[in-house]
Simulated scan of single mutants.
Amino acid sequence: MPDRVPIMLLPANVVRKLGRRTFPPVMLLLPLFPSLKGTLQEIRSEVGVDSFVTASLFSSFIYGLIFFLLSFALLSSRPITTDPLIFSIVLGAVFWLMFFILHIYYPGIIVKKIAAKENKDLLYALREMIIDIDGGVPLFDSMKNISAAGYGYISADFDWVVRQVESGVPEREVLKQLALKTESEFLKRAAWQMVNALESGAKMSDALEGIAVAVEEYLLREIKNYSNNLNFLLLIYMLVGIVAPSLGITFMVLLSAFSGLGVTIEAVMMLIICTSIFQVVMIGYMASTRPDLFGG
């Protein structure tokens, strides 16, 4: 698993080195994120929570610095009443805070993405296991085939199971450990079904068939729910991203005719910045909630 989140600007080796030094601000921030340590463990990151928070502060500061420089360069080239330095500092600080919060919560997003990818890959892995078992292949050999079949996180999980069994751990105990450590609800159910089938002597393929049907129905529901939500999200996107800027400028022009304040460059820039941020957030939300059924 990667030791850094995709939006982090610092490489993994730098993140580890930062954790070797103790920064007082980081020690004050750690109690604010009690679940972060467990989340990093769930994504199997080797980076400690103190290293991750430190790296998040530095990475988000770089983002804030970029927005500060862009804002200051843009405002300094235009005659405005507001001090461009103060406005740029405030804007940079706001983006620093926003990106820091995003860095902290992004491992939780990764956990959900891993569980979603596991559910997608699990359907095909279960189908292959059912065919193998019905064809007379032992369960261990079937799991070994899954570990080498390229089913993403599912193959990695079963590769761990195979290595544990080959090292001498009983098959049932390893499957129980898999059920406890995975974030995929359906993989948990599949692992417990295999344990129950091994202990009771029930037909393994029948136990796995029920899980495969449940996964397939779940994925179809996800697609339907996303399709329904996407229509509403597109409506909000068009209202805020297209209609709101046009009407906002129109209202400011009308109000300036009565109040005499005029339409300042600061007001127009704030409108552009706010709508741009909203559009980026909406696009990111629509992309992150898209069912990862076929990958990509």
Rank of each mutant, 00 (worst) to 15 (best):
A12S: 12
V15T: 01
R16W: 07
I43K: 04
V47H: 04
G48T: 11
G48A: 09
V49P: 01
S56L: 08
S60F: 11
F61Y: 08
I62V: 13
F68G: 03
L70W: 05
S71Q: 07
A73T: 14
P79R: 08
I80F: 06
T82W: 05
P84F: 06
S88Q: 00
I89Q: 00
L97T: 02
F99K: 00
L102E: 03
L102P: 00
I104F: 01
Y106R: 00
G108W: 04
I130Y: 02
G135H: 03
P138T: 12
L139T: 01
F140I: 14
N145D: 07
G150N: 04
Y153Q: 07
A156K: 15
V161G: 02
R172M: 10
T182K: 10
K188W: 09
A190V: 06
A191N: 04
Q193G: 15
L198I: 13
S200E: 06
G201R: 05
G210Y: 08
A214S: 14
E222A: 12
N228Y: 14
Y237S: 15
Y237C: 12
Y237F: 15
L247C: 09
I249L: 15
F251S: 13
S256E: 10
A257F: 11
F258S: 10
G260L: 11
G262H: 09
L271F: 11
L271W: 08
I273E: 03
A287E: 08
D292Q: 10
